[in-house]
């Protein structure tokens, strides 16, 4: 079930860090974006799926 996906080291470029205030700003924007998705209602299909799985095993 576990697969590995990694580029060889030779293909990696060195990475510079962004300034800390830019990093903070990005982090907050990402969290806002993410929170918006997590606050959406769980689609019924997943509740039904869990119900079905539960009934099959019990």
């Amino acid at each position: 079930m576990i697969a590995r996906h990694e580029k060889p080291a030779s293909k990696r470029k060195p990475s510079a860090r962004v300034p800390s205030n830019v990093e903070r700003s990005l982090g907050q924007q990402l969290k806002t974006y993410y929170q918006d998705i997590t606050e959406q209602e769980i689609p019924d299909r997943f509740l039904q799926l869990l119900q079905q799985l539960d009934e099959k095993t019990s």
Binding site: K13, R17, V18, P19, N21, V22, E23, S25, L26, Q28
Partner: peptide, 24 residues
């Protein structure tokens, strides 16, 4: 780090002087 650098670029957040301590 690379993702942040690219995102900052795409979102035009690269110029640190545009942002004070409360940038976020």
């Amino acid at each position: 780090n690379r993702a942040r650098a690219k995102l900052a670029d795409l979102l035009h957040l690269t110029d640190a002087s545009d942002y004070g301590p409360d940038a976020g």
